[in-house]
Nucleic acid binder design. Structure first.
Ligand code: FES
Ligand code: FES
Lengths: 151, 151
DNA sequence: TTTAATCTGGACCGAAGCGGTACCCATTGG
DNA sequence: CCAATGGGTACCGCTTCGGTCCAGATTAAA
């Protein structure tokens, strides 16, 4: 139902926690403790986030993780793309690997890309810092419109 | 990977096709033929869309389906909500039924709702008509930002 | 009245993706 | 040399999704 995967959710949580713990070096078990997430999952996620260049790792004894950049420079979209893969709503969006089976006789051909771009843009406008800090809406989001999107 | 389900994709395709076939009454097998989608799936989807009030059904011989409203008044978000369920990115977004397991010690508590609202708004701004008609961008979408969202 | 076309609702099943776990290797500071 | 920590990979059970099928209700037309 257009949900984020659990891993992605937790990934954002981890980055927010790292943002709150200032420039300190935090270990994987430490993060698991402070967030309440299961330790093995945290470790797995940190590997992925490191590989994506969102966090910096320091190996060896007394090692740990830190944010690679300022939290205001990390967008939610980047985190989603790092863990869940590139944002491609359908098979027939520009950049998707697979091809749409019914592309020949489809009334909307490549026009899904417009929706995809809109979502990409919306996600790139929200930074980890906005999610980590209590106050600060920063962006004036016009209250989700009046159209009913819930059941 | 933040994909739309196949059914949802097809649902939008069906509505677009209905929008193109003017106010004509189209049968389920007819829609399957014109879109190239498997007939049983089309039938299943039309039931759901009817139940959601997006299409009108006419039973009996010479029956068929029609759009319930003008295609410009049907947003992509509505279609997604009708088929995939309400847009709730995570378990801890306002309106979600389940509760987040780590809500007590979570650095971003209910702040996911901001992201959710942004996506809802983006999806409610795009109508079926925009996807069904060849021209007309209508909305000035600022080219999906520069932030890399692909792998 | 009879017939045929069409929608309605529900049940069913196989396949794929996801979440979670475990294991062992590489690196580094003490 | 040793202990602590990250790095990588492989595995497995569960849930969900996509797709199919069938019996029943409804209505226009012959
Ligand atoms: S659904 Fe893929 S091209 Fe239309
Ligand atoms: S992830 Fe649910 S409250 Fe933070």
């Amino acid at each position: 139902m257009l949900r984020l995967s659990h891993l992605t959710d937790y990934g954002v949580v981890l980055l927010s926690q790292l943002a709150q713990e200032a420039p300190a070096l935090v270990t994987a078990p430490g993060l698991a403790a402070s967030t309440g997430l299961p330790a093995p999952t945290v470790a797995k996620l940190l590997k992925v986030l490191t590989h994506a260049g969102l966090v910096s790792s320091h190996r060896g004894a007394a090692g740990g993780y830190t944010l690679a950049r300022s939290p205001v420079c990390i967008s939610v979209g980047e985190v989603i793309a790092a863990i869940d893969g590139p944002l491609a709503l359908t098979a027939c969006v520009e950049g998707a690997v697979e091809v749409c089976k019914v592309e020949s006789s489809c009334p909307i051909r490549g026009r899904w890309s417009k929706v995809n771009a809109a979502l990409k843009h919306a996600l790139s406008e929200i930074s980890i810092a906005e999610l980590a800090t209590p106050g600060s809406p920063v962006h004036d989001m016009p209250a989700a419109s009046g159209v009913a999107l819930s059941h």
